[in-house]
Computed example of a mutant assay.
Amino acid sequence: MFLKRFALAALAAAPFFCASMPANAEGLLTELRIGVLDHDSDLLRTRHETGDPDINIEARFASPDFLSWAFAPNPLIGANINTGNGTSLAYAGLGWTFYLTDDFFTDFTFGGAIHDGETTTPSSGSRQYGCSVSFHESFSLGYDLDKHNAIMVSVDHMSNASLCDENDGLTNLGIRYAYRF
């Protein structure tokens, strides 16, 4: 519970931190995203966890030269913090953005996550994730409002790819805002 409160306090402070950062395209931090996700969304399958939303925050960094062979993905770190008693997770990975038109884009991420959900003993209000460490993927469709601001609809998924005995997985749907430096 302390970790969730700390993460929520850090999330609340993020806009003030961002406002003090230089808008410099050559900096290490290239983009910040924040959003609200429908936790364990029942639009895709039966919800087993809380209906309390997740707050998503994600930081993206400049693509290092050695990743140019892989379409120059951006390293990223992020978190989905559940506002109730549902599973929260922290993740890291790589993200690729591809433009469909001048303003519309699609975005894919792949990496790993660590979560605080149930791994062995499910209850009526939880899923059984099997492992504390899992894979994390997301897909977004977005629109650039201008040079620095974008909005996107996102699907966020975590599962262990059946590397552990149980593999319920967690899928969230939502909307996110991005600010590019």
Rank of each mutant, 00 (worst) to 15 (best):
Glu137Arg: 11
Ser41Gln: 10
Glu31Gly: 04
Asn172Val: 02
Ser154Thr: 15
Ser41Met: 09
Glu58Asn: 11
Asn74Cys: 12
Ala9Phe: 05
Leu94Asn: 02
Pro122Phe: 12
Ile81Glu: 03
Leu173Ser: 07
Ala9Ser: 08
Gly86Ala: 09
Tyr143Phe: 14
Pro64Arg: 07
Asp40Tyr: 08
Ala23Gly: 09
Arg47Thr: 15
Leu37Glu: 14
Asp42Gly: 05
Ala178His: 11
Asn85Arg: 12
Lys147Val: 00
Leu29Trp: 04
Ala7Cys: 06
Asp165Phe: 14
Trp96Lys: 10
Glu49Cys: 00
Ser63Leu: 13
Asp54Thr: 02
Ser138Leu: 08
Ala9Asp: 09
Gly125Asn: 14
Thr50Ile: 04
Gly112Val: 11
Leu163Asp: 12
Ala23His: 14
Thr30Tyr: 01
Phe17Trp: 15
Trp69Met: 03
Ala13Lys: 09
Ser68Arg: 13
Cys164Met: 02
Asn24Ala: 10
Cys164Tyr: 05
Leu43Thr: 00
Ile34Asn: 11
Ser132His: 15
His148Lys: 13
Asn80Glu: 08
Ser126Gly: 12
Asn24Lys: 10
Thr30Ile: 12
Ser124Ile: 11
Ser132Glu: 13
Leu3Thr: 01
Asn74Ser: 11
Leu100Thr: 12
Ala13Phe: 05
Gly35Tyr: 03
His48Trp: 08
Thr101Val: 11
Glu118Phe: 00
Asp38Gly: 12
Asp107Arg: 15
Thr109His: 01
Ser41His: 11
Gly51Glu: 04
Leu100Gln: 15
Leu8Thr: 07
Ser123Tyr: 12
Phe110Cys: 07
Tyr91Ser: 15
Leu43Pro: 02
Thr50Asn: 07
Pro73Lys: 09
Gly111Asp: 05
Asn56Pro: 07
Arg45Met: 14
Asp102Lys: 06
Asp52Asn: 07
Cys131Leu: 02
Ser68Trp: 10
